[in-house]
Amino acid sequence: MARPPRFDTPQLLDAAVRLAAEAGPSGVTMSAVAAAVGAPSGSLYHRFTGRSALLAEVWLRTVEGFQEGYFEALESRDDPRAGGRAAARHIVSWSRTHPAEAALLLYGAQEFGRDDWSDEHLLRAEEGNMQVRAAVAALAGALGMHGRPGLDRVTLAVIDLPLSVVRRHLRGGTPLPAHAEDLAERCTDALLAGD
């Protein structure tokens, strides 16, 4: 009977997230992740074909974990404005409860080596991006905001604005204020209310 692995993939990816939050993408190397968990380097090469695969998995797992709750918040309400408000709150509250992951996402996929990702990783990333674009477009349509100006307004309301509430604190290493979710929700609601 085979012995279960001592270091599993989620454990290795968790260590990579911590390294990325502390030192940025350049701090995520195969040897650094192995050292962080006390694993031999072979444990990483057994799971990832190389550093580009490790970086892709760190990025995609983090984005997909965030997006799961984001889409649930955005699409779970009968009232589209309520869904938009819930999505804005989700961005702030997820960032509060996942500060290392949120700090990682400030960098962007390019800084996590997107140019060297496999076709499979690129497809996963594009599917997630398409789902975001479709959800924002659906919300704009449900609110009667049409054309590029409407899409831009909804994007600002449910993505850019809530991110701006958390970005300064994440970059500065300061805790989010207790009222951050309420602030993001109120600002998002004002934009979604229309003219």
Rank of each mutant, 00 (worst) to 15 (best):
S41V: 10
G42A: 11
G42L: 03
S43L: 03
Y45R: 07
H46D: 11
H46A: 13
R47P: 00
R47Q: 00
F48C: 02
F48L: 04
F48W: 03
R51E: 02
R51W: 01
S52D: 15
S52P: 15
A53E: 12
A53I: 08
A53G: 13
A53D: 13
A53W: 06
L54D: 06
L54K: 07
A56C: 05
V58F: 08
V58G: 03
W59Q: 14
L60A: 11
R61W: 14
V63Y: 13
V63P: 00
F66E: 14
F66G: 07
F66C: 08
Q67K: 08
Q67E: 15
E68S: 13
E68C: 15
G69C: 11
Y70W: 15
Y70N: 10
F71P: 00
F71S: 03
E72G: 11
A73K: 07
L74C: 04
L74G: 01
L74P: 00
L74A: 14
E75K: 05
D78F: 06
D79G: 11
P80D: 03
P80T: 13
R81P: 13
A82L: 14
A87M: 10
A87Q: 05
H90K: 04
I91H: 12
I91N: 15
V92S: 02
S93I: 09
W94H: 03
W94F: 09
S95C: 06
S95Q: 02
S95M: 04
R96D: 15
R96V: 05
T97R: 12
T97Q: 15
P99N: 11
A100F: 09
A100Y: 14
E101A: 15
E101T: 01
E101D: 14
A102W: 05
A103Q: 14
G108I: 12
A109R: 08
A109V: 07
F112W: 10
G113L: 03
G113P: 06
G113K: 02
D115A: 12
D119R: 12
E120L: 09
H121L: 05
L122S: 08
L122Q: 09
A125E: 07
E127F: 02
N129C: 10
V132L: 06
R133A: 08
V136T: 11
A137H: 06
A137W: 04
A138C: 05
A138N: 02
L139F: 01
L139Q: 03
A140R: 04
G141L: 10
L143W: 02
G144P: 01
M145D: 01
M145V: 00
M145A: 05
G147V: 06
G147M: 10
R148T: 10
G150L: 06
G150C: 04
L151I: 01
L151S: 07
D152M: 09
R153I: 10
R153D: 00
V154W: 01
V154H: 00
V154E: 00
V154N: 00
T155F: 07
L156Q: 09
A157Q: 01
V158F: 03
V158N: 04
V158G: 00
D160W: 09
L163K: 10
L163N: 15
L163Q: 14
L163G: 14
L163P: 11
V165D: 13
V166I: 08
V166H: 11
R168H: 11
H169V: 03
H169C: 12
R171E: 12
T174V: 10
L176G: 07
P177L: 03
